[in-house]
Amino acid sequence: MSDLLAIRNLVVEYPVGGGRHVHAVSDVTLSVKQGETLGLVGESGSGKSSLARALLQLPPPKAGAVVFDGQDLTQMRGQALRAMRPRLQMIFQDPIASLNPRRKVAEIIAEPLIVSGVSDAAERTRRVRAVMEAVGLDPDLVWNRRPHEFSGGQCQRIAIARALVLEPSLIVCDEPVSALDVSIRAQIVNLLEDMKARFGLTLLFIAHDLAVVKSVSDRVAVMYLGRLCEVADSDSLFATPAHPYTAALMAAIPVPDPDVPLGDTKLKPGDPPSPLDPPSGCRFRTRCPHAQPRCTDEVPPLRQIAPGREVACHFPLVG
């Protein structure tokens, strides 16, 4: 499989006043293959959402390249970039906030078609109805209603329909189920899997829930304080985490089984450092039980330890 999306040396910074900057994403290089689902895992402050927005050029990153289907999006401007946008879509965490409360469902889903110049109203109606049916919404019931009349799960279906109506190549799913009720999450996860198969999509699936990420992802990338820790195929990453942070993250997940004992936290006590002032060297070293003096001095580069397995650690747990 070839790379649909290649992110090279991406840097995202935000000003936070007083001349200071948050280094939300520092020098991240990552690729997404055509047709795969890449899971992106991290906690708050890891930069996973900043990465997602930067690759969609919302806003463009401070440095680095985002090569989508052979074209560097960071070099595109104005009309050229707008013409490219329909091929990369996004699904948001809060489905209610991602829909304009003053517009009707049919208008919301038709809007991408209008913007990209589908001027035939009958054609638009046909495509909106088709995509509504695909995501499990009854067009006749939802057509003229407004978002607040729907539950979170239904709103997420509407948002998915809006993302699909232009038949994009890549969809960035930014925590698509974490705001939903527990009994609804599986529906939306299954819907995304179905839509991926039906429309031949490539997904970048961002979440903090490791079990959901494992369920949908072919490969998984783990981020901590703006840097990549580990990239590997889903099964080997969860079977044998190589980065101490991945191991700590897995140990922290509450398992819905009272017979599974709470193991070691695999963390030094203490809070995560502020992204405003990340530690030198390896950013995880302040919480890492395996930290050595070398981790303070030297930033561990992302290196290959096995075919398809990369880790940014001086002392990986495997390999």
Binding site: L58, M84, R85, Q89, S98, R102, P112, R162
Partner: peptide, 26 residues
């Protein structure tokens, strides 16, 4: 700052369209 404005940008809507169609009604 709401996500629906971001969503309008991801479909390539112009600033004018976002201002008049997404923000003004609110």
């Amino acid at each position: 700052n709401r996500d629906f404005v971001l969503a309008a940008r991801t479909i390539g809507a112009s600033d004018w369209r976002i201002l008049t169609r997404e923000i003004l009604p609110n």
